[in-house]
Design a protein around this nucleic acid. Structure first.
Length: 344
RNA sequence: CCGCCCUUAGCUCAGACUGGUAGAGCAGUCGACUGUAGAUCGACUUGUCCCCCGUUCAAAUCGGGGAGGGCGGACCA
């Protein structure tokens, strides 16, 4: 695979790359390393899935992929995860991520999994962190983390240390590329700015788009109807997609279309399958799409009606999510121990 | 260590001074209209009023105690 192809693979379906020139150089030099961190807080959902799906692209592009289970971050961010549950939630996240990687058609064994506390408590790391706290203003740290850390009238210190630790993680994990949702942009721009002053190198950044909520607006992790959960059975998936905000011909803020674009098509492509819309004869009969672009064109021209799109999308999404749900159901302790208040 | 403020529906809060077993907005649910959803109409639902004790015929409301959260002061050899 030549550099152009590798760069194309690594950058497709992203919200932003900082910078593509840097990425190209990395590919020309060697096999770059990339990492993404997940703080094990609430239950994982389809939004996580799209970022994880992309790990398959990185692997195919020959990159070294590391997934950080950022356990300490999960507590630092307004104690989103109680300290006592960090281990259980980390175990649940790792297993679920492995299942998603597999569902995306890649091999989880090719990915290195790391826990935050495995290295974030090392004395060198801690020492550098303390230096950073002395050299970073509260306002700067707050601004960097504002899209990630929970907002509050009386913020805790943890939320300020959070972006600094994430910056040090890049270096500790020896990552050339920092990958994450576009909400992480503020933090990694801080990293690019200060990491060189603290013994590291400015990371190249790849950002995934954040999916719109199914009810319109931003996806809310706490609002069930705004997202598909990994524990949703096919009926629930169909119902949520059916109830989704999906104006005819409109692409902007259309969660259904985004799911199809960022999750369904890449996976179908991996399986070498086409996207088939079953449509009643009275509306023109079935439609087949080999690429998302063709589907979007038909949707914009209103050749493809939202109801027909929803029917098809619901089935494909349910089909993709199903093996993950089954895997979680086969290990009930995972969820029960991670979220005891919900699954007693 | 001291003082002050806050805690009421899923969320933001009103009600407390002048006791009579609770309200608004948003959210949610259900219909109508659309070949989806949304928007728009129409209808509807929602509560250990933080906990305990006391006063009272009657306590979200008054008194005492406690818990959690916030703010400030004091101490600074």
């Amino acid at each position: 695979m030549d550099t152009d192809e590798r760069v194309e693979l690594a950058t497709r379906n992203t919200a932003e790359v900082v910078t593509e020139e840097e990425l190209r150089e990395l590919f020309e030099d060697d096999d770059p390393s990339v990492y993404i961190g997940y703080a094990p807080t609430g239950e994982m959902h389809i939004g996580h899935f799209t970022t994880i799906r992309k790990l398959a692209d990185f692997l195919h592009a020959g990159m070294d992929v590391t997934v950080l289970i950022a356990d300490l971050h999960a507590h630092l961010d307004d104690a989103k995860s109680p300290f006592d549950l960090l281990a259980a939630r980390s175990a649940y996240y790792e297993e679920t991520i492995r299942a998603m990687v597999e569902a995306a058609g890649a091999d989880p064994e090719q990915i290195t999994f790391v826990r935050g506390r495995d290295f974030e408590l090392d004395s060198e790391y801690t020492l550098e962190l303390l230096r950073m706290t002395a050299e970073t203003t509260i306002a700067r740290a707050q601004r960097a983390a504002s899209e990630v850390v929970r907002e509050s009238d009386s913020p805790n210190l943890g939320g300020l240390v959070y972006p600094l630790m994430q910056t040090l993680d890049v270096d500790a994990l020896d990552a050339d590329v920092a990958y994450g949702g576009i909400d992480q942009r503020g933090i990694y721009m801080l990293s690019r700015e200060i990491l060189p002053e603290h013994g590291g190198e400015a990371p190249t950044c790849v950002f995934a788009p954040l999916l719109s909520g199914l009810t319109g607006g931003k996806m809310s992790a706490s609002e069930e109807s705004s997202k598909v959960s990994l524990t949703d059975d096919p009926d629930s998936v169909a119902e949520k997609i059916g109830d989704a905000y999906c104006p005819m011909g409109e692409v902007e803020g259309n969660g259904v279309l985004e799911y199809v674009r960022y999750l369904v098509f890449p996976i179908l492509e991996e399986r070498d399958e086409a996207f088939v819309v079953e449509r009643p004869e009275e509306y023109g009969g079935n439609l087949t799409y080999d690429s998302y672009g063709d589907l979007e064109d038909d949707f914009v021209s209103e050749e493809l009606h939202p109801q027909d799109l929803k029917n098809a999308a619901g089935e494909y999404i349910a089909d993709i999510v199903d093996p993950i749900r089954e895997r979680l159901e086969s290990q009930p302790d995972l969820l029960a121990e991670a979220y005891p208040e919900k699954y007693d």
